[in-house]
Design a protein around this nucleic acid. Sequence first.
DNA 1: ATGGTAGTGTAACTA
Length: 255
Amino acid sequence: MKIATWNVNSIRVRLPHILKWLKDGNHDVLCLQETKVEDKDFPEPVFTEAGYNVTYSGQKTYNGVAIVSRHPLTEVNSTPESIDPLQKRIVIASVAGIRLINVYVPNGSEVGSEKYEYKLQWLEALTQLISRELQDFPRLVVLGDFNIAPEDRDVYDPEGWEGSVLVSDKERRAFRALLKQSLVDVYRNFDQEAGAYSWWDYRAAAFRRNLGLRIDHILCSEPLAALCRSCVIDKTPRSWERPSDHAPVIAEFET
DNA sequence: ATGGTAGTGTAACTA
């Protein structure tokens, strides 16, 4: 069972990339963020015709999340209690005995801004939600764009980024509070090359120079982490023409 | 304190 996450930055623009990537990689589940379409405009037929099930929760211009799956999706919830229903940043579903929580965590804009405070509140609400979900679903995965680089090794220039949004102490503390719900950042359960990132700014040729951050994560409950056999970042689609600024992250499970 | 780019949607915002 291969489960992936990818911030595609517009599903309309990236649809060819997504279809090619799914076809090449034979993934079972792909969680998408920043689809940027209302539900009525989601290209559902394209996925169903390719043999996938989909569920999605979107809005115009901003945010938007979706789950694409080879296997049926059940117990879908895109409006969990205590999460702001006006910003479409979360969709939850079950697949093959695994509970998926697909998240697009607020960016936070700038440390100390209103959006930054909103991000911290959103993460607190997510932590509560996870603790409730864990009571019913021991095999749980929270994955998506967290907009947080958890440690200095997840940042190309930790000194330059110190205290900035995406790496600030409060955000990292909020991330650790998530992990304290007995979740495991499975990427770190395996040997990884230094300088492995999941996002590179479109500007200043950041991808070519590998000026990136690791802000997209796959966090597993302990029973599910025990079944995880690999976790990798696939940089390939970031090198394609007109790419998303994020690369997909993939975890493989023995099920 | 801002630039550099991209997406949405045509000015200015978000990232």
